[in-house]
């Protein structure tokens, strides 16, 4: 807050000393700000409106999509494209959550250890190098991660599956998506965790050291616990991104049409990868249903976010 305006702002009114010009500027700025802020509402309204159309219209004679079926079915489309409207996305929800959970199992430990390393353990120069590396990872576009997944991860998985005696279709699999998403989550979780680790009260650390705990002990038992809320915030951020990631995922998923696909070497599909599938040559209901998937994606993200925030609040309360 700027103290020039402090008084007026606290009184909940516009700055008092404004001249005529200033008032015009103020109104203009307010208008632009309202426009900026309105986009999130436009997104919600427009996509939801279009997304519920397949459920309430008869889709030019094909009949409306059954809502219950859409949320629960294990086959993307029963019957022929452009003829049937028996769409089901239930398995996509499970696949998406399952994949994001598994990717977190990889990225979370690596990120937290990296963050502790950068913030507390590494010598200054090494910490600088690692911080730059993490920044670099964060700025690599997702399509490039998808490309690396297709070029590096897929062949490795294909060969691993073969040497294990199982079948994988060219490496396209749940495991491939999990690894690519883990790659992409690491910079997010690491960056947020590092900041929250460094922001832990120094006195806490000193007290622990004074009580005779070793430096490492202090970092893991005191600092990390104190920073857990911040680390969790990083996890929430990463989960949100992983749920919504589209292009990188669909380059390595294999795009199954039914599920749920829990086998690590089986092809899979997520909500987003299905939205991108066959985009070039589609129309009518098969196109509109992508908006329904978009609404579904937003709902899944919001619910996951709310649940994780509840957990975060609970976790934050433990240990004071």
């Amino acid at each position: 807050m700027l103290d020039v305006w402090k008084k007026t702002q606290r009184n909940n009114e516009r700055p008092r000393m404004l001249g005529r010009n200033d008032k015009i500027l103020y109104k203009l700025l307010l208008l632009i700000t309202i426009i900026s802020a309105s986009f999130v509402i436009l997104i919600a309204v427009f996509i939801t409106l279009r997304g519920i159309l397949p459920f309430i219209t008869d889709n030019s004679g094909l009949g409306s999509v059954d809502l219950w079926n859409f949320f629960t079915d294990t086959v993307w489309l029963r019957g022929q494209t452009f003829v049937s409207t028996a769409y089901g996305a239930g398995f996509l929800i499970l696949n998406t959550l399952y994949i994001v959970f598994l990717s977190l199992l990889i990225s979370f430990p690596i990120s937290v250890f990296t963050a502790v390393f950068i913030a507390k353990i590494a010598p200054e120069k090494l910490a600088y190098l690692m911080r730059t590396a993490v920044e670099m990872m964060a700025s690599i576009p997702s399509i490039v991660y998808g490309l690396v997944g297709a070029g590096v991860v897929l062949p490795i998985i294909y060969n691993t599956a073969r040497s294990l005696g199982t079948h994988s279709s060219g490496g396209n699999s749940t495991l491939a998506v999990v690894i690519v998403l883990a790659f992409m989550s690491i910079p997010t979780i690491t960056a947020v965790s590092e900041v929250s680790i460094r922001n832990v009260d120094e006195n806490l650390e000193k007290a622990s050291l004074a009580l005779g705990a070793s430096n490492i002990q202090t970092q893991f038992k005191v600092v990390l616990i104190a920073a857990k809320s911040g680390i969790f915030a990083g996890v929430i951020l990463a989960v949100g991104r992983a749920l919504g990631e589209a292009t990188a995922v669909s380059l390595v998923a294999g795009n199954s049409r039914s599920g749920p696909n829990f086998g690590l070497f089986d092809i899979t599909s997520t909500i987003t990868s299905t939205m991108l599938q066959g985009l070039k040559e589609t129309q009518g209901i098969d196109y509109d249903i992508r908006f329904s998937l978009g609404v579904l994606l937003m709902v899944v993200i919001v619910i996951t976010n709310v649940l994780l925030n509840l957990v975060k609040r609970k976790v934050g309360k433990l240990h004071g």
């Binding site: 997104i43 919504g244 987003t272 994606l297």
Partner: peptide, 9 residues
């Protein structure tokens, strides 16, 4: 908001 949603917008 995921970028694919912006695409729908």
């Amino acid at each position: 908001v995921p970028s694919i949603i912006y695409g729908l917008l």
